[in-house]
């Protein structure tokens, strides 16, 4: 048991190491550097060299990486080159909560809309409702999320004035305000997952409903809503959690676009502007956080199976 845990931890550390080297190296391979961007058109060679030396950007690649890695491990994430932001504050305290809020809202939307839609589709298999839900689900996966976001903004925020156009309000400080600001971005980001969950729920439930224990429940005379919503839906949890864990990457990537469109100061915007601005250390911080999140969530998914499926528990 402990050996296994240690192995997992070792694996995670190796992966984080590879990820950090890869992202640092990739960005260093790209032409351009932060000082040139910072100097804009007021370019002078002396200022360029002076600032480059000041920020340690004249060091060889390995030295820069080692310097970053040693400090990062010690909890010193550095400051950004141009704007002199404290990266830990920026990435961890400011950007991460925004992205996590957005991601959890989207997941909540996806589950709250996707599961009932999928269940109803399965129950009303081969009816107009089923077909309608299928079309809806397909459309959700087919529209680029940024286009959807822009259309939602223009219709619901500008024309109808129902929701705010943009911005982030922390739900911890202002719960309803936070929800209010998250509805449009949450919806935009969740369309893909609504579609996926609807399809998954429908397919799984159809399969489940043919199982003997469902027939048994029916035979016991349990009402049909109970058969479906309790015995049936219980069995959807496991495949759902697996898929969601694996699709976390897609979700994180969706936040990049959603955050840009709705001007949310999250990791997605942070990473894109940092990659384009060659803020190497900000990119590193963002990549390490998303990678840890990804690995952590998938570990949790693994760990959650016994809880979700009594059969697995029994086997142990």
């Amino acid at each position: 048991m402990w050996g296994q845990a240690l192995g997992k931890i070792a694996q995670t550390l190796v992966v984080l190491f590879v990820v950090s080297v890869a992202s640092f190296g990739l960005l260093k391979l790209a032409p351009g550097d932060p000082i040139q961007i910072m100097l804009g058109s007021e370019y002078s060679q002396e200022a360029y060299e002076s600032l480059t030396a000041e920020l340690g950007l004249d060091q060889p690649f390995l030295a820069q990486y080692a310097d970053w890695a040693v400090r990062f491990v010690q909890g010193d994430w550095g400051t950004s080159y141009v704007a002199r932001t404290d990266i830990f504050t920026y990435a961890f305290k400011e950007a991460l909560p925004v992205t996590l809020t957005l991601a959890s809202f989207s997941l909540a939307f996806a589950i709250l809309i996707g599961v009932p839609l999928g269940v109803l589709s399965a129950v009303k298999k081969d009816t107009a409702f089923d077909a309608g839900a299928a079309v809806l689900a397909l459309t959700g996966t087919a529209f680029p999320s940024f286009l959807l976001g822009i259309l939602l903004i223009w219709f619901f925020a500008v024309k109808m004035q129902l929701f705010p156009v943009m911005g982030y309000v922390s739900p911890w400080q202002d719960f309803w305000g936070g929800i209010y600001h998250m509805i449009l971005p949450g919806l935009t980001l969740s369309t893909y997952f609504i579609a996926m969950i609807t399809r998954l729920t429908r397919a799984t439930l159809i399969e489940v409903m043919e199982q003997p224990y469902i027939a048994a429940a029916r035979a016991r005379g349990e009402p049909s809503w109970r058969v479906i919503w309790v015995h049936g839906v219980r069995n959807i949890a496991m495949p759902l959690v697996t898929i969601l864990g694996l699709q976390l990457g897609v979700l994180l990537q969706g936040t990049v676009l959603t955050e840009t469109v709705f001007n949310l100061p999250g990791i997605g915007q942070m990473l894109t502007s940092a990659v384009l601005g060659r803020e190497y250390m900000v990119v590193q911080a963002g990549v390490m956080m998303t990678a840890t999140l990804f690995i952590g969530v998938n570990l949790l998914v693994d760990l959650s199976y016994p809880f979700l499926d009594p059969r697995l528990r029994a086997r142990k």
């Binding site: 694996q11 190796v14 992966v15 984080l16 590879v18 990820v19 890869a22 992202s23 990457g249 994180l252 990537q253 990049v256 676009l257 990473l271 894109t272 990659v275 963002g286 990549v287 998303t290 990678a291 990804f294 690995i295």
Partner: peptide
Amino acid sequence: RLIDSILALPSLI
């Protein structure tokens, strides 16, 4: 671990 690493980086980034 290599595969895990590639997966851990968002593909858009």
